[in-house]
């Protein structure tokens, strides 16, 4: 449902940040778009939400949002998780824009850890919240060294990690924040989205902005950029599978959350993308146990 714009709180500039700061962030976004996958540094500000809780995404959204925009905010794929609620309230308060839960109606979607199941359209912008922008950070803690590796396209270390996984576990063991090669040049961390969502990054009609507030980096995937998940020819990239359908709407091709439904430990699987699930149910798709998550009286 789309809520109408509200009068924003007095005493704040539109979307909280001053215009100079917004301009400087937009310049960084443009730079990042010009070199897809490259981490552009920016002067991140302290925001009223803590570092680590989406300040990068909030600054990126604040820099690009206008009074005519329609904003959707999700966390773990759902609109009603506490932090998504908190961020949506922040923009309602400081920008007074229309907000929505419907993916196709949003012009800007700020998200943490998921990409919507619904295919995005040209003209939409996705802002992803990033905790650690550097894909090689766990292998090489020094920023000076990783910066050099990116500049010289020295990515052997990334494949060494994948090799080790296969040698010890038989398969690549990265489940989320799965590294990708962008436009044939930069290796990028797509933020902790499950690898299930990686294919959505490739050739998307939408603009995808990745913002890390605490680490002070922005990187972008302009529309229709080629994005390939790292793998080996004989161990190709594969996404998660479930042998179950969503209990509420019956979907078999969406990312499912595993919910512990009662004290006995009964598991119920439901779509992580709450809007996608609601749309399917509204269209008449009913799952096996549509009342599984109803509150017990």
């Amino acid at each position: 449902m789309t809520t109408p714009s509200t009068t924003r709180a007095a005493g704040y500039n539109f979307a909280y940040l001053d215009e100079q700061t917004k301009r400087s962030i937009r310049r960084t976004i443009l730079k990042a778009m010009a070199v897809p996958g490259y981490q552009a540094p920016f002067g991140s500000r302290e925001m009223p939400l803590p570092y680590g809780w989406g300040t990068g995404g909030i600054q990126a959204t604040a820099a690009i949002i206008g009074p005519d925009d329609v904003l959707k905010v999700i966390d773990q794929g759902a609109d009603d998780t506490t932090n998504a609620v908190s961020i949506r309230r922040f923009f309602a308060l400081t920008a007074g824009v229309r907000t929505t839960e419907r993916t196709p109606e949003a012009s800007i979607i700020q998200t943490r850890h998921r990409i919507p199941e619904t295919k995005l359209a040209a003209g939409q912008i996705v802002v992803l919240q990033v905790p650690m922008p550097e894909p090689m950070r766990r292998l090489e803690p020094r920023e000076t060294e990783t910066r050099k590796m990116h500049a010289l396209a020295e990515y052997g270390l990334m494949h060494v990690k994948l090799y080790e996984d296969i040698a010890h576990l038989g398969k690549i063991s990265t489940a989320y924040d799965y590294p990708v090669k962008v436009n044939g040049r930069y290796v990028m961390a797509p933020s902790p989205i499950p690898k299930f969502d990686n294919p959505k990054l490739d050739m998307s009609p939408a603009l995808q902005i990745f913002a890390a507030g605490r680490e002070k980096r922005i990187y972008c995937l302009p529309p229709y950029t080629e994005v390939k998940s790292l793998d080996f020819d004989d161990h190709p990239f594969e996404i998660e599978q479930w042998d179950k359908a969503c209990a509420l709407c019956g979907a078999t091709d969406s990312f499912l959350d595993e919910v512990i439904a009662d004290d006995a430990g009964t598991r119920v699987y439901v779509c992580s993308d709450s809007d996608h699930c609601a749309e399917r149910r509204a269209a008449g798709h009913i799952g096996a146990t549509p009342d599984a998550l109803a509150e017990t009286p």
Binding site: G156, V160, E164, D234
Partner: peptide, 26 residues
């Protein structure tokens, strides 16, 4: 690289110059 296996140590240079077949690297 003390933190990775002998095989990865030997294979790293191959991976650095673009070898992408796990079986061949091994």
């Amino acid at each position: 690289r003390m933190a990775v296996s002998a095989g990865a140590n030997v294979g790293e240079r191959l991976m650095a110059v673009g070898e992408r077949h796990y079986g061949r690297i091994r």
